[in-house]
Amino acid sequence: MSILVIAEHDNGSLKDETLNTVTAAVQIGGNVDLLIAGENCNAVAEQAAKISGVNRVLVADHAVYAHQLAENISLLVSELAVDYSHVLAPATTNGKNFMPRVAATLDVSQISEITAVVSADTFKRPIYAGNAIATVQSTDKVKVITVRATGFDAAVCDGSATIESLDKATDAGLSSFVKEELAQSDRPGLTSAKVIISGGRGMGNSSNFSLLEQVADKLGAAVGASRAAVDAGYAPNDMQVGQTGKIVAPDLYIAVGISGAIQHLAGMKDSKVIVAINKDEEAPIFQVADFGLVDDLFDAVPELANSL
């Protein structure tokens, strides 16, 4: 078996999701090659060569790949794919964009957003917004897969793969890049943040949310709120995490003064690590928290901000 992993990068640096995807590939087993398609992306290739588990780094460096246009990347990947048993990409907006085109071109199904590898042809993936987990088996000749990063640990970077450049460039001629506006805000949006700190009714009033912002600034975190805090007028509705708000799954979720009603848990239970700070030790939030701190949030949160 041999596996092709498509790297996520911005031509300047490799994105972390690539490391988790390599881990998924290693779990499937076999030779792992990494494809970097971009423009002036040598630095990325250098970085990628260090990922352990990667055999070869293939670099397609050309203007047609500069902006990861799905029409162009998918032609390249489907051409390469015939030599592999599996093609994997991170389930980023980029991976989700071009991979189904690869699958359709190869006349195979795609297995989206796997969170576990059961065997070389069987995988687990969440369906119904994570409310059910399906185990799916593929009999296709090439398995086209996107990988949810939070399902796999990041591969370590102490390897030394060979770098080979590919002399390939196809422009489908269907689309062109106009512009890109990356969010400049210091604080990430709730749905894309890796760390979220949320406040509940225990915050007492809206000005106390500034305590959370101090922690958020230190961690590069987004600030969220529970429905109860929003209803009490402590926070605007677009900060709401939960059944009727945003569904989030960051690496770290810190719930402050949130009791943990099921309606809130529905919006954050897929977070990798959950921390609860609440003075009521019976609060249901402690039933789902990896780390709980029974303390007055007005003492604990400033102390947390100071110790980061």
Binding site: N237, T244, A261, I262, Q263, A266
Partner: peptide, 16 residues
């Protein structure tokens, strides 16, 4: 408790 019960009634009202 009440809230986990209401959760199972699939109750929803449009926001705002």
């Amino acid at each position: 408790d009440k809230l986990s019960s209401v959760f199972l009634s699939n109750t929803h009202h449009a926001e705002d």
